[in-house]
Design a binder for these strands. Structure first.
Lengths: 98, 98
DNA sequence: TGTACCTTTGACACTTCTTGACAAGTCAAA
DNA sequence: TTTGACTTGTCAAGAAGTGTCAAAGGTACA
């Protein structure tokens, strides 16, 4: 399971679009988008952006889900996941104000 | 630059320990710990834990810096880094309460 | 100057992970 | 049973990670 994947599937099905159609738009194999929706494979940033456009949804939402998944796959079930993520958030916020 | 690396160097120098000594304790090449302190290479979790013990410092602090660095290297300078990290934090916190 | 020591650097081999593609599989509806 | 949608497993190529080594930089000091 996978946050972006769930979101994509949800939005795609709501619009009665087929994997085939999404795959064609992104110019990738159908298998890949299928796997992406189920969290078995990652899309790259560009593909996620295109997907947001194609599905008429928010790029911010899609990309932040995509990042969120990456973070979780990195810190996931570590005992100190919360502390690490909080530290990162602080640093990122500080970094922005420059 | 690198948060865990800076911390390690700071603590190590405060204790007048040589890279060589740290490396010997971790059973790795001196070059590797040198690079780790400067953020050119990553240590693995086990090495970070041993390091905390060897340097008499907090495991929680070391591991969360280590995770923090990983997160930053993943979401780093993305426009939506903050949003993604916040989402991840929420989800991780929720996950813990199970 | 020379040497002794600590650290940094770049190259390397090796392994593991990722990526995209393809073929074959399942499954439900007609 | 056929069709269309989706899933699954596998493969090869390339990328990225891991540890090591030898050589080079830098510093301190006799």
């Amino acid at each position: 399971m996978n946050n972006l994947g769930q979101k994509i599937r949800e939005v795609r099905e709501k619009q009665h679009l087929l994997l085939r159609q999404v795959a064609a738009y992104l110019e990738i194999d159908t298998a890949l988008i299928s796997k992406a929706e189920r969290g078995e494979r990652n899309l790259n940033r560009e593909q996620v952006v295109k997907l947001a456009i194609f599905l008429n949804d928010s790029e911010e939402e899609f990309i932040s889900l995509w990042l969120c998944d990456k973070i979780i796959s990195v810190v996931g079930d570590d005992n100190y996941a919360i502390q690490g993520t909080q530290k990162a958030l602080k640093i990122i916020k500080k970094e922005i104000n420059k």
